[in-house]
Design a protein around this nucleic acid. Structure first.
Length: 103
DNA sequence: TTTGCGGCTGTAA
DNA sequence: CTTACAGCCGCAA
């Protein structure tokens, strides 16, 4: 499998996540057709350019937490972006019960 | 060529 | 709540 194709599929799915909702890495991987490839999603998103329009901030880990160390710039950035679109973020945690995207 | 480490996950203790 | 561990795998050292 080409990393190219996988990347395409991942971007495709991530772009579908509506504002105000979140999805997990594993969820994206599965929807893109690559179960067990959660890390590939993270890898892929970490390489996105600054000016990317992809809503990378709407992707969090399976524990409903932001996968960046607390207090890091990236962590703050993601938290703010999510809150800006109405997602409640407490201590880097998001309630999947309420905000997880159901395709 | 091997190693260690990620924006991970599900299961188990 | 925390480790631990097996899966998974590209990538830099």
């Amino acid at each position: 499998m080409q990393i190219e194709a996988m990347q395409q599929a991942i971007w495709q799915i991530v772009s579908l996540i509506p504002a105000g909702r979140v999805a997990t890495y594993g969820q994206i991987a599965a929807l893109a057709g690559f179960p067990k490839q959660a890390r590939a999603v993270g890898r892929c998103l970490s390489r996105l350019p600054e000016d990317s329009q992809l809503p990378w901030h709407r992707v969090i880990n399976a524990q409903g937490r932001i996968s960046f160390a607390d207090l890091t710039p990236a962590f703050i950035e993601q938290s703010q972006r999510l809150r800006a679109e109405g997602v409640q973020v407490e201590q880097g945690r998001i309630r999947l019960r309420e905000y997880q995207w159901q395709p």
